Amino acid sequence: MTIPLLTLNNGVEMPAFGLGVYRSRPEETTGAVLSAFEAGYRHVDTAAAYMNEEQVGEAFRSSGLARLDVFIESKLWLSDYTYDGAIHGFERSLRKLGMEYIDLYLLHQPAPTEFERTLGAWKALCEIVKSGRARAVGVSNFNEEELKRIIDETGVVPAVNQVELHPFFTQKKLSQFHQEQGILTQAWSPIGGVNRYFTEDPKPEDDPLTHPTIIRIAEGHGKSSAQVILRWHIELGHSVIPKSVHTERIRENFDIFDFSLSSEEVALIDALNTGRRGGPDPKSLSTQTVKFSIPE
């Protein structure tokens, strides 16, 4: 099975499909990543704040794969924002992963109330990518205004913006801006799981997996609702990083390259947008509201 490759704005190629390990406990992560590698995945998305970079590195070393054959992505947490802090945070991630370079390194949040710190961290990432220790750099959870500001300040356009994006929160305006700027849209919570795990009272009507339109399209293709949603992302040119620690689900999620959706089906899924986030508003996150630091 050949995974489509997406070309970033600096020419680096990234597999369009990968495994996310947000909310994967350290004791689950090594096995999940190994299962993904065995299924054919070659892209893993982690972060300092997920507290499982070491286990991602362990899984890679156990896999027998060559470093050039895998794409590893990680993120800098708010507590390390500032220029010097970002250099230190990046080096910590390298050490925990046990790798000499990271393929894609992101700022995890915009922290708009502390944006000078954010700018300092972004300037550090611009230097890191010049050094070759990161092959590409980008951001996560940034809006259009925040993207414009870091581009204006440095002249460096992020390769990727990783944002909450699923059929109930399609982010069309932001994705259009990404396209105009040469920024790749990467979807976290691509199936809409955030609508289940970020509430104490999940409701079926808030879950894209149970929407009649998705179910009907899935039945027409002999696929699951999750597979249809993930294929929708691929049709739109997104990078997609669904999370699972279950081998069967990891394999099921990956089995989306033997069918395609029609433009009409894509439009039907697009029309499910509610404009409502399932996760926290990135504007609310700062070192004042989220007070943990990354252990050494």
Rank of each mutant, 00 (worst) to 15 (best):
W77A: 03
G138P: 01
A66N: 12
S260T: 03
F71W: 04
A187G: 07
A271D: 15
T170P: 05
V163R: 01
A111W: 06
I3R: 02
A218D: 07
E27Q: 14
L94R: 06
Q288Y: 12
R42Y: 12
K75F: 02
G11P: 15
R277N: 14
S293I: 13
L6C: 13
G155F: 02
F254I: 09
E116C: 14
E58W: 10
K283C: 10
R23K: 09
Q162F: 09
V33T: 00
F169A: 08
D45L: 02
S93Q: 11
Q227T: 12
N141M: 11
A159S: 05
L34T: 02
N161V: 06
I128H: 01
P112K: 15
T213K: 07
L34W: 01
F254K: 02
F198D: 07
I269C: 11
S140P: 03
L119E: 11
W188R: 05
L34S: 03
Y101P: 02
R23S: 11
T289V: 12
D103V: 03
G89Q: 08
L65W: 08
T287E: 12
E180G: 14
A86R: 01
I250V: 06
G182C: 07
Q109T: 15
N161A: 05
E265W: 05
F168H: 08
V156K: 01
D152E: 13
E100P: 04
P295T: 11
G138S: 06
I102E: 03
G98Q: 15
P167W: 04
V228M: 08
H221A: 12
A136V: 07
T29N: 05
H211K: 10
G64V: 10
W232T: 03
L107P: 00
A134G: 06
S189Q: 05
L68Q: 14
S293H: 15
S263G: 12
I217T: 03
